[in-house]
């Protein structure tokens, strides 16, 4: 990772790092290869047009510093935007990762899919009437020499939550 002052600022004091107690939704992005995880916590409100908006967001990373930098940037972008804008943000982020070396892509992908899991989990919980925590696994590998194939959108209920 090439360093500049902005990146070091994200490493020293990542935006939105921590958790939201009793968050409206928690999404988890996981690297099945090494067990690294990102947890994204969101609180949700409706805007005047009735669309869901991310009113508060936080993340925790059981992962490397590159993931923390990605979490700091992506969660800051996601704050105060509607779910549909957030879906665009996720899609653009995942699209950009297609041209990035897999070991670097894995970190940002983990954050993007955790955010997606938080949004999908919130929508599912609205349907089912109780909180749903989703875990999405990533498709990139941290170690290109050990590339593996897993459906990026695989989803399952979290046993721990």
């Amino acid at each position: 990772m090439e360093m500049d002052k902005e990146i070091i600022q994200h490493m020293s004091n990542p935006n939105n790092y921590g958790r939201i107690e009793d968050a409206d939704s928690i999404g988890i992005g996981e690297n099945p290869q090494n067990g690294e995880k990102v947890l994204v916590y969101i609180d949700v409100e409706k805007d005047c047009s009735g669309e869901y908006v991310i009113a508060d967001i936080a993340f925790e990373a059981i992962a490397c510093m590159t993931t923390v930098v990605a979490g700091s940037i992506i969660t800051q972008e996601a704050r105060d935007i509607t779910f549909s804008k957030c879906e665009e943000l996720i899609s653009v982020t995942l699209g950009m990762l297609e041209n990035v070396p897999p070991e670097e892509a894995a970190c940002s992908e983990m954050v993007a899919v955790a955010l997606k899991a938080a949004i999908d989990g919130y929508l599912l919980s609205q349907e089912k009437g109780e909180k749903q925590t989703l875990i999405y696994k990533i498709g990139h590998s941290c170690s290109p020499d050990k590339e593996f194939s897993i459906e990026p959108q695989e989803e399952k209920q979290c046993k721990n939550c």
Binding site: M11, S12, E60, A61, I62
Partner: peptide, 13 residues
């Protein structure tokens, strides 16, 4: 010139 407090730990760790 890059001193920082380590980030908080998730309890599952």
């Amino acid at each position: 010139g890059i001193l920082a407090v380590p980030r908080t730990l998730h309890k599952s760790l």
